[in-house]
């Protein structure tokens, strides 16, 4: 559909498809829908309501994401649009699908290891990295080590491969 053309209530499936084309501002290899932050798309009368949840409380990309969604949908002819913020349930890296994980790996970011999300409380291991095996996204080696719990964006940690010696980002579980 040509940009700028006014449309009459496109189907929500169509809106989801448009949102799936929007790259994450900080990790452009995956889309906003890959990331799992778009929680709902619904029409309320003649207003399109898109519900978005932030990844991390202070993620600076959140504001950009809202602007990107608004601009993209206005270009598609959506006149009445509201973007709601939803905090609950809190975003989890478990919402990244298999396809998104493969895209991350191909981009050089180790995808989150399922089941290793930060579990606050008594069940938590001494260190969140203990027993965590993260494969190097470049050479595939499992001989890797964590350099820091934090990395170049709030959602990543800094790791290093002990075989190919390359440092890499690990998309951490939360």
């Amino acid at each position: 559909m040509p940009h700028g053309e006014t449309v009459d209530r496109p189907a929500t499936a169509q809106v989801w498809a448009w949102l799936a084309e929007l790259p994450d501002p900080e990790i452009p290899v995956i889309s906003l829908t890959d990331l799992g932050i778009v929680r709902d798309v619904a029409w309320q009368g003649d207003t399109l309501v898109v519900t978005v949840t932030p990844t991390y409380s202070g993620c600076p990309a959140t504001g950009i994401i809202t602007l990107d969604i608004e601009r993209a949908l206005r270009e598609r002819g959506i006149g009445k649009l509201r973007i709601d913020r939803q905090l609950s349930p809190p975003w989890t890296s478990d919402w990244l699908g298999p396809e998104a994980r493969e895209k991350l790996r191909a981009f050089g970011i180790a995808p989150p290891v399922p089941g290793s999300a930060a579990m606050p409380g008594a069940a938590r291991a001494r260190s969140l990295a203990d027993g965590l095996s993260v494969a190097c996204p470049r050479c595939g080696s499992d001989r890797t080590e964590r350099l820091s719990q934090f990395g170049s964006t709030p959602c990543k940690a800094a790791w290093r491969c002990r075989d190919c010696l390359e440092p890499f980002d690990y998309f951490k579980c939360i």
Binding site: Y56, S57, L87, S88, P89, P90, W91, T92, A117, A118, M119, P120, R124, S127, L128, A129, S148, Q149, F150, K172, I174
Partner: peptide, 17 residues
């Protein structure tokens, strides 16, 4: 409750570090 549920996941990493 919903703000706390989100924040505590982040704070688990702060405490780990």
């Amino acid at each position: 409750a919903e703000i706390a549920a989100k924040a505590r996941k982040e704070v688990a990493y702060h405490l780990d570090r």
